[in-house]
Computed example of a mutant assay.
Amino acid sequence: MNKKNELVRSIAVPVISVLAGLLLGAIIMLVFQYNPVEGYGAMIEGAFGRAYNVGEVVRLATPLILTGLGFSVAYTAGFFNIGLAGQALCGWIASIWLAMTFPDLPKALLVPLCIIAGTLAGALWAGIAGFFRAQFGTSEVIVTIMLNYTILYISNHIVRYVLTDNADATPKISPNASLRSDFLTQLSGGSRLNGGIFLALLMIVLVWVLMKRTTAGFELRSVGLNPLASEYAGMNAKKNIILAMVISGALAGMGGVVEGLGTFENLYVLSAAPEIGFDGLAVSLLGGGNPIGILLSSLLFGVLKIGGLKMPSVGVPKEIVEIVIASIIFFVGINYAIRYIMDKFAAKKMTGKGEA
């Protein structure tokens, strides 16, 4: 019975958070004299009105699935990997660099090589923070934030002075390195939907198997629950710290690969680390760290962000979408309050039955 109640709460908390975020967005629209019905109606039309829109929703959700999975692995092991953006950028750089270095390799060989290179780059960048945490007890939050800025400026230098001659963007990669396919493009009405979605779906399955059905996953979860007890039981805490961060960074690196080889097909000068890192963190929290929850949360973010582009057509600023997303994350962050209210309501209901 307790397991059933916990399952209900784990589903109810994100649902309530989403509804509360949408309600707060509606209230803000009313306060500033916008029509929330028209605003949300335009959002739905912008997300589902055409095949192109649906394709863009799924396209945007794809890297978020990967970065969200990356965050969930580290979080389950007890670490807050806020460096997903930098690790994704590492994957983006490595995949584009390799694609530009060997543009004439067969597609069946070049695409897997680029994916592997980007994955390893993300894993290596996250492994730096994992190593310092394991060996010296440094905060992975501080180290990963610093690494985000470090790779951002390295990336811009590479774009301007290594891959180009003082240009702000690299040339488009060859079709042999692209994740796009004519089938997906035609199916989605010309959107940028690409083969990265299949990679993301595969990772959902693999991460679930890793965390739920393997010894390594059991050790990662154990270290997250109680590192001292885990070490007393014979588990190598330092090894698991590094392993968790490496896996987390590898998944984030894949997200960057999808952006580089699928969405943009090049690398350009950035003013900030990629949004997919921070959005992936939010997606993971909203999805409760569960792979299926992360999939659904990523699609929700895709609907909000792509659909929100249509809101100005009815006079509602698209920035309202960011307020809604921030509100949803706020309510997820205070999930203990939602759970407290739910428990009080359940206790009151049981008391009422007892008195009857």
Rank of each mutant, 00 (worst) to 15 (best):
N2A: 15
K3C: 06
N5H: 11
R9L: 15
S10Y: 03
I11Y: 10
I11T: 12
V15P: 08
I16F: 13
V18Q: 01
V18N: 03
V18Y: 02
A20H: 08
G21Q: 06
G25C: 05
I27Q: 04
V37L: 15
Y40K: 05
E45H: 12
F48H: 09
Y52C: 09
V54N: 01
G55Y: 02
E56A: 11
V58M: 07
A61F: 08
T62S: 09
I65L: 10
I65G: 00
L66K: 03
L69V: 12
G70V: 08
V73I: 12
N81D: 05
I82V: 15
A88T: 09
G91K: 02
A94N: 06
S95P: 11
S95R: 04
I96K: 02
W97R: 02
M100T: 14
M100F: 07
F102K: 08
D104S: 12
L105K: 06
L105E: 06
K107S: 15
K107W: 10
A108V: 15
A108G: 09
L110Y: 01
L113C: 13
I116H: 02
I116S: 05
T119D: 03
A121W: 04
A126V: 12
F131T: 14
G137E: 00
T138M: 07
T138I: 08
I142Q: 00
I142T: 11
I145V: 15
L147W: 07
N148W: 05
N148Y: 09
Y149A: 11
Y149E: 10
T150L: 14
L152C: 06
H157K: 10
L163C: 13
D168F: 09
P171S: 12
A177H: 07
D182W: 00
F183M: 13
F183P: 02
L187V: 07
G190S: 08
G195N: 10
L206E: 11
L206Q: 08
T215A: 13
F218E: 07
E219S: 09
L220T: 05
R221E: 10
V223E: 01
G224H: 06
G224K: 03
G224Y: 05
L225I: 13
N226F: 07
N226S: 15
P227E: 08
A229Q: 07
A229I: 10
A233T: 14
A233Y: 01
G234Y: 01
N236R: 10
N240L: 10
L243V: 08
A244S: 15
V246S: 03
V246R: 00
S248P: 07
A252K: 04
G255W: 00
G255N: 03
G255T: 06
G260S: 12
L261K: 04
L261M: 07
G262R: 01
F264C: 00
V269Y: 02
L270E: 05
S271A: 12
A272G: 02
G277C: 05
F278P: 00
V283Q: 00
G287I: 08
G288I: 11
N290W: 12
P291Y: 06
P291A: 13
I292D: 03
S298D: 02
L300P: 07
F301M: 12
G302A: 12
L304Y: 03
G308M: 09
L309M: 10
K318R: 10
E319C: 02
E319S: 13
I320E: 03
V321R: 05
I323F: 04
I323R: 00
V324E: 04
V332K: 06
G333Y: 00
M342S: 13
A347W: 10
K349R: 15
